[in-house]
Design a protein around this nucleic acid. Structure first.
Lengths: 333, 333
DNA sequence: TGCGTCGAGTAATACGTATGACTCGTCGAT
DNA sequence: ATCGACGAGTCATACGTATTACTCGACGCA
């Protein structure tokens, strides 16, 4: 226990020789015409002297709001969430809200719920990349889903992953590719299911198009093995479409191990456009998802929800970024 | 505003036909011998029926504690913080504490302080990679610094970055390198100042050792340019020591642009051992920092602090991980 | 029968803040 | 001289919970 506990507004009042109400009035900034400037100054000085800061728990209780929103994500290791957080914070700040992040693994049970803990001292939740079933845990806490199925029951801001996949396939088709390999992430998130579906449909629609698929964990070694499986089949693909940028790094490794040059002998694409995409050599052709925009728009929707309106779900289009990892299909292969 | 506001313990009491005290007693789990099992069951059922969850603000006010800790970081984009968070959460959970993350840019002013907002509804702060000056903002909130100067005034858990640098230099020296280039990050964080100092000292101590340095922003393009500057000098270095893994990716690009093969013609080392290190080709020789351990030990220290003890600062050693980016110095160069 | 004890529950209160209702001089207008 | 209005504060209260002190009936025991 600390030597002395924190000063309260009552202490400040005593120090300044006024009542607690006056302190609250002054420090709340609503004293125009209620408190004389001289008294206000006295109060401010006393507060400063004591190092007073209001007790947030008491304030929250009194006001019935915390003006704080929780950004809930399944992991912090994915580089993807940094920009989402940034966008959310930017938008929240414009309305006087703060944001904290909480990691809730997608496979967590109700016992791990932040709602079993005091974290719940928040007004709403921005839940990114969560399965819709998770929603049940929110039990009345206003929530907006990010990067989830826009057809779900909750307001959602999602990426146009299907559009992105179609753009990739169109790009590859224009380069002459027909046999496409899919280095897929496990379909335990909506976004990966959507990506797989979109890719299948796009290749299907391509005259002469043929799709093969291998599934990997989101990890370089696993992706390398999956890519190697695809490349060592008879009649192997001339292009590998990977479900995200990290998987593409694995594809690079498989290609190198098999002596295939990227992009002259094998084209590789990623998805997301995280930092890694430009750190690789050659730089990765991928789809840029507007992650910061996702955070911002999600926050906008949540704030709408908090003010009693029902926001509409939105889809943010991705954009194909052509870099050095894709090239013309070699007729020979 | 929601249609109906959340049920309180009073509502539950009414529903169950008991007093509010009884509800609190039962739901608090402290009713052994004070409430009959039958009544307890009734209360639980009523709470379930109404979907009751205690108001955290009220509970926090009453108890004077939130059992929540804030992990404050300067950015979420660095892959480094995921493991730190994980370690902190693991340790906190063992003591019934929760963790939320808050991003406070290192260059933020007091106006941006989370302590100006309700986020402050927390018991303590784990401040990672912050300048000690930031500490002044905490104003009495118990804080432990992570990845900061262990000689500072606050309890600190830091990495043994000096040891790590020495290990790198010893490794390079054993391979015959003498002329070392330092691709340095801007010294605005303690850790980078410490790395630079340690590297300088280690090369200094090497017979015939020579150090050149170029500074870069923590970004691939900037690192590429800095590395290129070093490599195009007369009498260029045979090994590039980079302040972190991302900078090493930039060094790879410079080497490739100049037609230098890694590792046969140029050795490159990183620092941190983040995901990127094994995504690169060749895989990066680097120093693994026990980030998860940092989070866990930091949390342990903070919890000690919260229980009135004064924790001691600790330093966690890094470990050299030799991969494919370092090789014997070519006599020719 | 009288008394202490115990089981089962309730009443009352405090945590620290924000705010609507109230008080009490003083001053200007009639 | 009287009254209303206004400026400058203060009083009292509520937010929802956890907990201490209390009540009250039943029961065991001498």
């Amino acid at each position: 226990m600390p030597a002395t506990s924190r000063p309260t507004s009552k202490d400040v009042a005593h120090e300044a020789g006024v009542s607690q109400s006056t302190v609250s009035l002054v420090l709340g900034g609503k004293w125009s015409g209620r408190v004389s400037p001289a008294t206000a100054r006295t109060v401010h000085e006393a507060a400063e002297r004591l190092g007073y800061r209001p007790n947030p728990a008491a304030r929250n209780l009194r006001l019935g709001t915390t003006r704080t929103v929780l950004l809930m994500v399944p992991t912090l290791t994915a580089p993807f969430f940094g920009p989402v957080y940034t966008g959310a914070v930017r938008e929240a700040a414009r309305h006087g809200f703060g944001v904290v992040a909480y990691v809730w693994p997608d496979d967590a049970g109700p016992a791990d719920s932040p709602f079993a803990a005091p974290h719940e001292a928040i007004d709403g939740v921005l839940a990114s990349s969560m399965e819709p079933a998770t929603l049940a845990e929110f039990r009345g806490t206003p929530a907006v889903m990010l990067d989830s199925d826009p057809a779900g029951t909750a307001p959602t801001v999602a990426f146009g992953v299907a559009d992105g996949m179609r753009a990739i396939v169109a790009h590859l088709a224009a380069l002459g590719h027909r046999r496409v390999g899919h280095v897929a992430a496990a379909p335990d998130q909506w976004t990966f299911r959507a990506r797989a579906r979109a890719l299948a449909a796009a290749v299907e629609a391509l005259p002469g198009g043929a799709l093969t698929r291998a599934t990997a964990a989101i990890e370089v070694g696993s992706a390398r093995d999956a890519a190697a499986r695809l490349l060592t089949r008879p009649d192997p693909p001339t292009a590998l479409v990977c479900d995200d940028d990290l998987l593409a790094a694995g594809a690079y490794k498989a290609a190198r191990a098999l002596g295939l040059d990227v992009p002259s002998e094998l084209s590789v694409t990623g998805f997301d456009d995280v930092l890694l995409a430009t750190a690789l050599e050659p730089e990765l052709t991928t789809v840029r998802l507007p992650a910061e925009e996702l955070g911002a728009q999600g926050m906008t929707a949540l704030l709408e929800l908090l003010s009693g309106h029902r926001p509409v779900s939105r889809v943010l289009p991705g954009r194909l970024v052509v870099r050095g990892s894709t090239g013309p299909a070699r007729p020979g292969r």
